[in-house]
Design a protein around this nucleic acid. Structure first.
Length: 559
RNA sequence: UGCCGGAUGGUGUAACGGUAGCACAGCAGACUCUGAAUCUGUGAGUCUAGGUUCGAAUCCUAGUCCGGCAACCA
């Protein structure tokens, strides 16, 4: 069918699904789900799962549900629900009619629990969590059976209904599955199915005081929704026997749980705890800080949904842990933005340039290409005059051999404008800092072409001093200066914070930039990709966040 | 020290008993009104030891190393 040679190989989950579709298992249906717990914002690791679940469904003509896994009332908040929906939608996915809450199934789950009790496969246990530690035992040694393990069915039924009725305090009793206290898998040693939690649930609001645990709830949620392939991360592998056990005992629709490795990336942290800490301790400004790997953060930085999707496709899906180079994400960001970002001229670190042989009162306009990758984007006019700003880094008094920007006596091209030759500089008498650079232009090079075909190696960007606007530009860099800041699981990551992860500068920008639409992606030529911050940027007072720098061979040479 | 997973260039991955390939990163060059993009070339890999086989990254055995599991979290 697909003969594309460059297509990535089929990862193991794709293979399983394809095999199932072909064999007619589930009558060829594919139903997946993305089941976040609404107690935090989504990050790039979640995005991998979102892309996988929605991607597989789309690829095989199936559906993917978005489900709030809200089985723990004390940890969840409503504010996250809308944020999660917004993030998933922004990533480019649509759950159609299938937005669900696990808590909507509580009544059904309760009935399944009763069924398990009737079968003799679950019992009410009054051991405290402290006591249970001893009973459960350790991996190397079998546990002991609870003294309540053989409670008669009728008594269990009675007690369980009393639990529901709120007749016991928190923690007084739990419902346990009766499985095997000798199992080498701790999760099979009579795991808790229900606990008493007299807390107000944000979604069911006071109806319940007992709540199902993840292990009991999750397989039932999947079953009730008719999920076919339940994709989750590696740490749930040891839970799979329990997932299967519950569904088998109940004899209901039984999806296949498949585990894959979660995403790790260099120079960042992904754990919710660490992310919260960075915010609370003021290292960053909030969940949507552009330095964070959160979906909202990336969005504010100017990362596009397409680049995230492409990235997630390229990193593949495996069953072993890995550490993905942030450079790979950056590649897809540049790849997308190169094709779609409008070009503009902006000077981040300005120094005055004066064209001696250009009349003081004169000015003119030059045509500039909006996007060389997309001719349809057209051109625009940029004003030019005797006094300009250029980038301080684009001039050197005493340049090394391979430097082909401006220097005394050297000729360069002003992008889209003309050729100039440097005639001298004026420095501050005390500091020695260069205040002004002088040059002469070649009027025959109007528009930037070389009249006699002479080769001019360097082209630099500029902005007319008289017409320049001023804009706040935030230069973001990686948040940590080591590849694996979270390697040692303590608080060590805080010592690896990059103190220079944000620098704000006042940039001189071409006039068109002053009215940049909030939310637009722009390439500042020769500098990088920038994003008109949808939170802070206003017409007339733009604020740009640097999404990524352009690749820079000169910088790599170490200069 | 019990159980469950896993191991392919610097990084992410493919190959499903038949020439170890792709992408990123690196390096070199071409082109260029962005030191960008594009194009070309290039170095670099099957954890170890045995075995099966005409042939092993792939199958078997043993070992090494890595990850996960002892919440009434998910």
């Amino acid at each position: 069918m697909n003969t594309e040679e460059t297509a990535p190989g089929k990862h193991f989950i794709r293979q399983i699904i394809e095999r199932d579709v072909r064999s007619g298992k589930w009558s060829g249906r594919v139903v997946t789900r993305f089941p976040p717990e609404p107690n935090g914002y989504l990050h790039i690791g979640h995005a991998k799962s979102v892309c996988l679940n929605f991607g597989m469904a789309a690829e095989y003509g199936g559906t993917c549900h978005l489900r709030m896994d809200d089985t723990n009332p004390v940890k969840e908040e409503l504010e996250y629900v809308e944020a999660i929906k917004e993030d998933v939608r922004w990533l480019g996915f649509d759950w159609g009619e299938h937005f669900h809450y696990a808590s909507d199934y509580f009544e059904q789950m309760y009935k399944y629990a009763v069924e398990l009790i009737r079968q003799g496969n679950a019992y009410v246990c009054a051991l405290s969590s402290e006591e249970w530690k001893d009973y459960r035992g350790i991996p190397e040694k079998p546990g002991m059976e609870s003294p309540h393990r053989n409670r008669p069915v009728d008594e269990n039924l009675e007690l369980f209904s009393m639990m529901r009725a709120g007749e016991f305090p928190d923690g007084a009793m739990v419902l346990r599955a009766k499985i095997d206290m000798g199992s080498p898998n701790l999760h099979m040693r009579d795991p808790v199915l229900y606990r008493i939690l007299k807390a107000k649930h944000p979604h069911t609001d006071g109806v319940w005081c007992i709540y199902p645990t993840y292990d009991f709830a999750h397989c039932l949620e999947d079953s009730i929704e008719g999920i076919t392939h339940s994709l989750c991360t590696l740490e749930f592998e040891v839970h799979r026997p329990l997932y299967d056990w519950i569904l088998d005992k109940l004899g209901i629709h039984h999806p296949q749980q498949i585990e894959f490795a979660r995403l790790n990336m260099t120079y960042t942290v992904m754990s919710k705890r660490k992310l919260i800490n960075l915010i609370n301790e003021g290292y960053v400004d909030g969940w949507d800080d552009p330095r964070l790997p959160t979906v909202r953060g990336m969005r504010r930085r100017g990362v596009t949904p397409a680049s995230i999707r492409n990235f997630c496709e390229r990193i593949g899906v495996t069953k072993y842990d890995s550490l993905t180079d942030t450079a790979l994400l950056e590649h897809f960001i540049r790849d997308d933005l190169n094709r779609h970002a409008t070009r503009a001229l902006a000077v981040l670190n300005p120094v005055k340039l004066i064209i001696e042989n250009y009349p003081e009162d004169e000015e003119e306009e030059f045509d500039a290409v909006n996007n060389p990758e997309s001719p349809d984007a057209g051109t625009r006019k940029i004003p030019f005059g005797r006094e300009l700003y250029i980038e301080r880094e684009d001039f050197m008094e005493d340049p090394p051999k391979k430097y082909y920007r401006l220097a005394p006596g050297r000729e360069v091209r002003l992008r889209y404008a003309c050729l100039i030759t440097c005639t001298g500089v004026k420095k501050d008498e005390v500091s020695g800092e260069i205040e002004k650079i002088y040059c002469r232009w070649d009027p025959d090079s109007r528009g930037g072409g070389a009249p006699d075909g002479r080769k001019v190696k360097g082209t630099i960007h500029w902005v007319s001093a008289r017409h320049a606007g001023e804009a706040d530009v935030r230069l973001y860099d990686r948040l940590f200066n080591v590849e694996e800041p979270g390697a040692d699981n303590g608080e060590d990551y805080l010592t690896h914070i990059n103190q220079d992860s944000l620098r704000t500068v006042k940039a001189k920008v071409e006039p068109s930039l002053m009215n940049a639409a909030a939310g637009s992606h722009i390439q500042f030529e020769r500098l990088g990709y920038f994003y008109a911050d949808h939170v802070n940027s206003k017409p007339g007072k733009p604020v740009f966040n640097r999404t990524a720098t352009l690749r820079d061979q000169w910088a790599k040479k170490g200069q």
